[in-house]
Amino acid sequence: MVSAMEIYQLLPQAACKECGYVSCMALAVALLSREKKLEDCPSLFDPKYADKLNKLKELLAPLEQASETGLIIHDEKCFGCANCVVACPVNVANDPTGSAIGLGPKSDKVILVIENGVVRCLNPNECRRFGPNRILCNACTATCPSKAIEFV
């Protein structure tokens, strides 16, 4: 997955502070967490950085498909094993007679479900990574045998 360092290396590295941050590295981190956009860095649109800008656009494209929580699903890698569905603490709490005990979800308050052989994210706003009090839960990514889900 993309790292802040990779983004940083493609930024102008001029520390002009026009984006509001003291360093380009800080902007790189903000870009990664999608708090800022490339447009927030005016220097980048100087024609001499055209190459870097294009590369950055490519690099950041996958982040745009991420849900509000930064969840990205790679359908082609998913086994549909439901490990993530069963391990997700929100699924467990909201669905004690379904996903908590290994069965298909019986509640519509679950986040992860399996449809057509692959995982789907239904209620991203229920996820522990959502909102101002978010915590870095990784129960779903840690139980995935194929890196089919990740957070950016």
Partner: peptide, 25 residues
């Protein structure tokens, strides 16, 4: 099993809660 019986770990052998296994795996 992740390849041969994909739901083995999630339904039975590792991740689900059970009557004597109420906490996480």
């Amino acid at each position: 099993p992740s390849n041969s019986h994909p739901r083995h770990l999630s339904r039975f052998s590792y991740y689900p809660r059970g009557s004597k296994r109420q906490k996480g795996y």
